[in-house]
């Protein structure tokens, strides 16, 4: 019984990646989760009450997102807080964010 359980665990772990790509069932991706954290400041509702911080609710063009985040990160674009945030993301993570916001464009 114990061996069967261990084998089941090993199978689940090894099949994890495969199951993700083949299933239509809900899965939250890292890009999606990271993008959702942006919405705390950048408005989770289209045309929300906040007039000062740009809304990302209706998505954002991929290349522009990558360009902006990198410019915030290397300081070529001035900001109050976005430079400090952008420094927390690698090129790969910026690409994940940009991919996600590109898919939610309306």
């Amino acid at each position: 019984m114990k061996h069967a359980k261990l084998a089941a665990v090993a199978l689940a772990v090894s099949l994890g990646g495969l199951a993700v790509s083949q299933s239509a069932l809900a899965e939250v991706t890292r890009g999606q989760l990271m993008a959702k954290t942006c919405l705390a400041c950048h408005g989770s509702v289209a045309g929300g009450p906040d007039a000062t911080i740009p809304s990302l609710v209706n998505g954002y063009p991929r290349q522009l997102m990558i360009q902006n985040m990198k410019a915030f990160r290397d300081g070529t674009r001035a900001a109050t807080v976005m430079n400090r945030h952008a420094l927390g993301y690698t090129d790969e993570e910026i690409a994940l964010l940009a991919d996600y916001f590109d898919t939610t464009r309306r």
Binding site: A40, C41, G43, G48, P49, I53
Partner: peptide, 23 residues
């Protein structure tokens, strides 16, 4: 001016995060 901008963002942050949570 920088401090004023962050004061504006402070208020914008409140509106945005409370909408994100309870909106």
């Amino acid at each position: 001016n920088f401090r004023r901008m962050e004061a504006n963002y402070t208020r914008g942050w409140y509106d945005s995060i409370t909408t994100d949570i309870w909106g």
